[in-house]
Amino acid sequence: MRNDNDRNIWLRVCARDEIPVLGARVIRREGGDDVALFRTQDDHVFAVIDRCPHRGGPLSQGIVHGRSVTCPLHGWNIGLDDGHAVAPDVGCAQVFQVRELDGNVYLRRDELFAADSPVALSCSS
């Protein structure tokens, strides 16, 4: 992190290599839904709420491909970058901003600890 200000905004959650390629890890938040951290084949990291917009399936347990994950329960495809269900399904999962620096993964503190997860934030468009 470049400076203290950054450090106040971003929280390091893990090293990128702790997430399997084409796989996921789960961040457990006290008092909130889990967050799933995904790593794609081309080495990008995405953070999405670990609740499928369909019936709440744990997205972290799905199969990652391209820029999406297939939910393990009923096979919806959820876009990792915007949380939107891939058409024709309709729905949206909250996504979190991710920053990667020197092989470390950071999430925004305010997004992580917001009292009630503003599910709608990334979905309102």
Binding site: N8, C14, I27, R28, E30, R109, F113
Partner: peptide
């Protein structure tokens, strides 16, 4: 799971 325990509203580390 990766635990996150910080609950401080000031987000201090």
């Amino acid at each position: 799971p990766i635990p996150i325990t910080v609950k401080d509203p000031a987000y201090a580390e």
